[in-house]
Structure formats: C-alpha cells, structure tokens
Design a protein around this nucleic acid. Structure first.
Length: 481
RNA sequence: GCCUCCAUUGUCUAGCGGUCUAGGACGCCGCCCUCUCAAGGCGGAAACAUGGGUUCGAGUCCCAUUGGGGGUGCCA
C-alpha cells in the first residue's frame, strides 16, 4: 500500500521551527517510503485568519526543499486541500454520527460552559462536559433545532474501559475512557473543529501515516473512537516530541527564536537550519552530522526518532551554519555577504572580493559581519593597552619604536598590493633583526584598533589603502606619544 | 488537581542484559600552528536522576519516588 502523509499547518503568518521540523520528518519519511506527501491548510478558525499566511507556508517549505505532491496550489485527486473550502462536507458526517448515537446535539451556550468550567477549576476539579444534552429526547432536540437555537455537535465518548493505540515512536499508549471529554465536532458557526475536520480529512485523503506533534498524543484516543464509529481504518500514528528552548520552555515567539523567518533574517542558511533541525530528536545511528536533503531521505528511519523533547541549541546551529557558510561557493558567499558589508562599508571603496575571502571562513552568521568589518570604515577609539602583548613580545614602548620603523617603509611603497606590502615590510623587518610579531602586532593594532580582526596587518593595510593606512599608523604613533 | 508521556555529560545524542573503566558532536579548557582572531591538528574536564526489585550479571527489564514535557478550549 502506498504511504500517504500530510503536513497540516494552520496559517498563522509564521512558520514555527517545530512545525518546520514536523514537515521535514513527514517529507523525509514519505520520500523514503516512496509515498505521497500532502499539504493541507487547516484554516477552520475564522477568527484567526491572517492575510497572506498561506504564502508564508508555501515559500518556507519550497525554500527548504520540502516539496508536496498534492496541495492547494498543485492540486490532486483528493481536494480541495484547504479546509475552509471543504466546510460543507463535515456536517453530514457529524449527522451520520448523531444517527449512530456516537455524537449528539448540544445546546449549552459557551457562557454557561465557561461558568461551569470556572467553578470546576475553583474547586480544583477537572472540567468535563456532563453529557447534559445527551439526555434530551429526540423531540426536544428537534424542537430546539426548529426554533433555530444555536447548537454544537459533540461526540459521545464512552465512560468505562480504556482506549489504547500503538504509536510508532511511543509504543503502546492507553487512556482511561472516563477521562475523555465529549469534544465538540461542529462549532456553533457550522464549522468543524480541528479535531473533527482532521479525522474526516485524513480519512478522505487516504492518509496512512499521521505524523504530528505530541500535543495530540492525548486526543488521539478520541480520534480513534471517531474512526471506529465510522467504520474507517485507523492510520498509523507517529508522534513527535516538542522542540524546546530550554528544559521547561518551548521555542517561543516572545524570545524571537521560534520562527523560520527570524533565522533567515539573521543570516542563517536554510540548509544549515534544516540539517540541524533534522538532528533535534532524530539521529542516523552513525557519526554523520552533515546531510543534504537526499542524504536525509536516505538515512531517515522512524525507529530512530527520540522520545524525549530536545532543546534547540543555538550554539550548535551556529557552528553548523558556519560550516555551511565556509563551504559555500565563493561567489555565492560574496553575493550573500555584500548587503551585510554594505551596511557599514558602502561607498568606502573597499575591495569586497578580498575582504570576502578573508571573511568567509570566519562568518558564523551573516548578521555578525557588520561588527567584524566596521573598523575598516572608521578606526575605533582604542586603548594603547592593546599594544601590550607578551607572546608577541611587544608593549607600548616597543610598539612606538617599531611603528616608527615601519612608517617610512609604508610611505615608500608605490605599488600598494597586498603581496608588495608583505614583501617589502617583511624584508625591512628581517633587515632590522626584529621579531615579526613585535612589528606586525603593533602595526595591526594601529591599523585596526582591535585585538582581533579578520586578516592580519598586510591584509588590513591593503584593504584600507595607502593613505588611510599611513594616516592610521601616524595616529597610532600620536597615541603612543 | 486529574490523565498521559519522557528521563545517559551544560546541550544534541550512541547504547536495544555481559563488547561500558559509557562512544561521537556542540560548547568549555589546554597545547600546537601562526603577524591577531578564526579555521585546522592534538589533548583534557564533563553523564547513566534517586530508591527498590528481577538476573550469575542492569545505563539497558520491572516498580516506586523525584524532576520535566504535553493534554485538560465552540485554538490548531
């Protein structure tokens, strides 16, 4: 039988990393099994409609290389793939359940329920709908319906025994039936709840494997009751652990660390993000850590999915991102780095190509570039303490002496190429009998005003140009009295 | 509160009864390389939550405790 899976996000306008990972795993699993991956938009909550939100979903998924075989934009034989476009389809199924006694009309108002819920909570009890409306006679129900009284349809859960199922990740899971609440299937506005639409759609779309976040672990028994009431086959369940920010918090909107777009804006590469995300909660069983999408598909195995929640480690992501950046074709790097260089160096006439060569191996995240290169635009105000360096065998006194040595040499260089600067200065150092470090450290400090820089003294001198380099060395000498 | 799931270094994890004096990676520390930093190379510190069982033998199986997650919406 062909594997059919689905990713069913609700369009909120953002793609949460946890959701992205769910989509990824669905995709990897499906492709590995040679099945079909379906994208379905779950927009049954009219109050939360966000303009353009579906585009965010499309763009993110496509950008990451997660492609669907059926969906709102590409079609398929099981459409429509947007729940709001299927809204007329759910009520008859609910009515069918009412006829079978597996569901019933409920006329309790939201306000009444809220009150009862609050009262329950005040007493420290669990609120559970008391099946009040289940006791209504057929005639009473019809009367209310005829009178146009608003209603919802609730499922009629058993109150004894237990419901169990086998999850491909968590194994056997059992719930006592008396804890099951008679959840609402059809809302007062006629729309199905997520819970109901989900079951109907998964069945109608021929979904064989439901892979989703584990927040649904405890409502799954109720879904199964629904499948059974219809006489439908229950799909395989694969529940996924939550991606956490720390041991007790999920990745959240508030901390700006939850959305795909946050990371892209900061300058994380989508390949790195996908690669890293795949490893939070899953591992290949080998020491391999870097994967292309095809390699992930090849290596993916549901049995290697983890059962405990994983903390999203920004440090490791950043490390991985740096690796990905360093492996970028140089021209791609240059193109991607340019806007970031422009933030502080636009119009300064700096050789971006050379600078990019120096920067590529040191770029962890693109948004860190401006801070690393801004010294080229303007010499930072630095302390002469920077000239003290034990290992380079230099201090402010030696620095002054060596800067005085190197200044006229610099002035005498006609062809200001990096190679030329290097050769001429090195020759002068050799001739003076001084240590390389004792000259080059002060030079680099004078040129950059920074303890660490991308590139050494020669690279910086070249990038700065002759005039600016000389100006900075002179200024350095001034500082040293 | 009730239901349920989970539990190996700071983090991601390997481990599916003996091969574990617990392996890999990030991070951290040290050394080397080197005109700085980074990269790279080498090395180091760092974990089986606790208590009971089962077994000749437990990180691995069972139970309890503790800790954490999730659910408990006319949200998805």
């Amino acid at each position: 039988m062909e594997v059919r899976t689905r990713f069913a996000p609700s369009p909120t306008g953002f793609m949460h990393l946890g959701g992205l990972r769910t989509a990824l795993y669905n995709y990897l699993f499906t492709k590995k099994m040679g099945g079909k991956f379906i994208l379905r938009i779950e927009d049954t909550d009219q109050e939360r409609f966000v303009e353009g939100a579906t585009d965010v979903i499309y763009d993110t998924l496509k950008g990451c290389g997660i492609n669907w075989d059926e969906g709102p934009d590409v079609g398929g034989n099981y459409g429509p793939y947007v729940q709001s476009e299927r809204k007329n389809l759910y009520l008859p199924y609910a009515q069918q359940l009412v006829e079978k006694g597996a569901a019933y009309y409920c006329f309790c108002t939201k306000e009444e329920l809220d009150e009862r819920r609050a009262a329950c909570e005040a007493k420290g009890e669990v609120f559970k709908y008391d099946k009040h409306c289940l006791n209504l006679s057929k005639e009473e129900v019809q009367q209310k319906l005829d009178a146009g009284i608003p209603y919802v349809i609730r499922m009629n859960c058993p109150t004894e025994g237990e419901s169990a199922y086998d999850d491909l990740v968590f194994g056997h899971i059992a719930f006592p039936n008396d804890t099951l609440d008679d959840m609402i299937l059809i809302k007062a506005d006629g729309m199905p709840t997520y819970n109901f639409a989900n079951v109907i759609d998964d069945h109608l779309m021929g979904i064989t494997h439901v892979m989703r976040g584990m927040e649904y672990l405890s409502s799954t028994p109720k879904y199964n009751l629904l499948y059974n009431a219809f006489g439908w086959e229950i799909p395989q369940y694969i529940h996924l652990t939550t991606v956490m920010r720390d041991s007790q918090h999920k990745l959240s909107k508030r901390d700006g660390d939850a959305y795909y777009s946050d990371f892209i804006q900061k300058g994380y590469l989508k390949e790195a993000l996908i690669n890293y995300l795949a490893l939070v909660g899953w591992n290949p069983g080998t020491d391999q850590e870097f994967f292309t999408m095809d390699e992930l598909i090849e290596a993916f195995d549901v049995s290697r999915l983890n059962k405990s929640p994983g903390i999203f480690d920004m440090e490791k992501l950043t490390w991985m991102n740096a690796k990905y950046i360093s492996e970028l074709p140089f021209d791609t790097y240059l193109e991607m780095a340019t806007p970031w260089l422009d933030k502080v160096l636009a119009g300064k006439g700096i050789d971006y190509r050379r600078l990019a060569e120096l920067m590529q191996g040191r770029t962890e995240v693109f948004n860190r570039i401006p801070d690393m290169v801004s010294f080229l635009a303007e010499l930072p105000d630095y302390s002469i303490d920077l000239h003290t360096h034990k290992k380079m065998k230099t201090d402010p006194v030696i620095a002054k002496e060596n800067l005085e040595l190197v200044l006229p040499i610099l002035k005498g260089i006609d062809n200001w190429s990096e190679q030329n600067i290097h050769d001429i200065v090195m020759a002068a150092i050799a001739e003076s009998g001084k240590k390389n470090g004792a000259v080059l450290w002060p030079l680099r400090i004078a040129l950059s005003g920074l303890e660490s820089t991308p590139g050494g003294a020669f690279e910086i001198a070249y990038l700065l140009g002759k005039d600016e380099s000389i100006r900075r060395v002179e200024k350095g000498l001034e500082k040293l009295g």
